[in-house]
Design a protein around this nucleic acid. Structure first.
Lengths: 124, 124
DNA sequence: CCATTTTTGACAACCATTTTCGTTTTCGCG
DNA sequence: CGCGAAAACGAAAATGGTTGTCAAAAATGG
């Protein structure tokens, strides 16, 4: 169902790195789609609710989305220049977070980790 | 100088955990201060520029601030109910982030880590 | 085909944050 | 003190990403 949502998913999958809703909207319009901004937001919300995409907030408060290859819990290392993201795993961090929680009496501990850097391409 | 900025700093220092600009504004007004919202924002921006407070974004895009005890790099574990924050250190994570960066050819690697949970008090 | 439900998109509403701008306060200095 | 420049302030308006509204359009299924 819902061709539109599919279009948003593909626009997201087709580009590496984190994209904002407005970015995706612009992309789709540029391709000739008559999609509305509202629908892009709705699609992204649905996709993030179902866990198909990751969401995080930039420092200026914009929400950015990314389609992930794996469904399991993982993190990213994002290039601060070109926004390319590489998925990374961190058993170390997972364990550390859990330990810290226990140590301070916290329950149901979750965490967000984002690593930023300048990728090999962009640092040349 | 700037009595107002001092008032904001104290409002922030006086309360544990992360507070939003609007929260602090409400607090100050409740205390009888005639401070304006604009000034609260300006003060918080100045304080964060000078590194005296930490800033991060909640999932709904609001900016929250916290006065930290130490000036060195560290992270927090935040109660998702009462927003109380405990400072934690993570040599493990620092090392891990650096390693991951090197491994994928990233330079100037930085990272943000936030741990959330329900604190002992609130989980009762 | 028609009725019902779902999806869509233009537009208005929201709300945190920023800008603008005229006023007030602070500060340096005679 | 007293005065003028500079900084700080606050009210109100503007901004901009995101969400809500609602009527039209498309899918669904008798």
């Amino acid at each position: 169902m819902s061709t539109r949502r599919e279009a948003v998913r593909q626009a997201l999958t087709g580009s590496s790195g984190f994209r904002s809703a407005q970015d995706l909207y612009a992309d789709l319009r540029a391709e000739g789609s008559k999609i509305g901004l509202t629908t892009v937001y709705r699609a992204l919300q649905a996709l993030s609710d179902s866990g198909e995409v990751d969401v995080l907030r930039t420092d200026d408060g914009e929400a950015v989305y990314r389609a992930c290859d794996t469904e399991s819990h993982h993190h990213h290392i994002v290039c601060r220049v070109c926004a390319t993201a590489v998925e990374i795993e961190g058993p170390t961090v997972e364990k550390w977070a859990a330990e810290m929680g226990a140590q301070h009496g916290f329950r149901d501990v979750t965490h967000t980790v984002e690593v930023f850097g300048t990728c090999a391409n962009c640092s040349r």
